[in-house]
Write a protein that binds this DNA or RNA. Sequence first.
DNA 1: CTAGTATGGGAACGATCGATCCACAAGTCT
DNA 2: AGACTTGTGGATCGATCGTTCCCATACTAG
Lengths: 201, 201
Amino acid sequence: MGRPREFDEQDAVIRATDLFWRRGYNATSVRDLGTDLKLTPSSMYRTFTDKHTLFLRALDHYRATESAQAEQRLDAAGRPVRQVLRDWMLWLVSCPSDGEPGRGCFVVNTATELGTTDAQVRQRTEAAFEVTRQALRSLLHNGRHDGELPIGLDIDATVELLFTTVLGLRVRERAGHDCARLATAIDAVIQALGFTSTQPS
Amino acid sequence: MGRPREFDEQDAVIRATDLFWRRGYNATSVRDLGTDLKLTPSSMYRTFTDKHTLFLRALDHYRATESAQAEQRLDAAGRPVRQVLRDWMLWLVSCPSDGEPGRGCFVVNTATELGTTDAQVRQRTEAAFEVTRQALRSLLHNGRHDGELPIGLDIDATVELLFTTVLGLRVRERAGHDCARLATAIDAVIQALGFTSTQPS
DNA sequence: CTAGTATGGGAACGATCGATCCACAAGTCT
DNA sequence: AGACTTGTGGATCGATCGTTCCCATACTAG
């Protein structure tokens, strides 16, 4: 009961995510947020408590949408591991269709900006990282069963390698590096790992 | 002529570098700087013009010391490429002796925080990146001459791969990831690239 | 219709931001 | 000595920070 809301809370979180994602936490003021979300300070604080809490909401929203979509793309679904990995990484660095520069990965950006000082943020970024590592691990395990992986390949080590590479790719995307160059790096990784290029035996 | 300075300018730049490196640009206030550099605002502004200019000084100082040292370690000096690369990357992620968390790479941190908005910063970070890429290129070219590299290895692509990996490692170091894990990733990369493990033929 | 309840609009809070100003100190020059 | 030049200390500037408060508004319950 009481006066009904004139805005959609979920929509506000989406816009906040976009803003924090592009500018980071410190460089985004509550007035910027208010303008972009079309929220007065009182509505914003009544709904989201404070800036920090809203940021955590945005981070959680990102994980539940963008990150989740990324992990979904790691589900092999019968395709060769080599191809799944390649498509996945290419998708991660694909610059948005419009002329805007890439935003990188919200989780990665946040981990470098706040991960060293903010415990709540750090817990979330580390959890997100672990989910990605686990998805990679599953993919490689499946690949081993299907005989696509070189015999004797250390799966745990390969997960660390791929995860590290992906972080690097995300940073380079945000830094505006040429997509073609990043694709070169991706192909080099895939090739170096020596997955069988054709269907499993 | 005039009254002599009571502080060492270079020393102030060093302290500013440390502060910006750890906290980033936006999270470091001029009062923080003043306290740490033991400088009053008037001295600070007379010497360094403003916060942004001081930040550029710090960034340049970092490139001239830390970055330069990193590139120096990429000079093969007759050692096998495999070993040079491994030692170099391990050194990059070696957590400082004390209990403090890693600070990552100042250039990488800055590129993600300001690279998308600040042209002066971006020009510097891109230049720093290019120097690293060039050092990697030289190393691999030398390795090819010495016969350590697999025949048919695409040097440009391998440079992109290694450079991307290193960015990822730097981010993970700042994120406080376990050094042993990072070492695993490093060894996996080295092995995947397939450099000859012994001396050149 | 009235009482109760939650929101929207927007002024305003104290704190802090980056930056400036000015009186004074500490040197060099003639 | 006095003129000149440069640096120091610290108060202070206007702007902006994150946040709170108040009141009109718009709805529901009785």
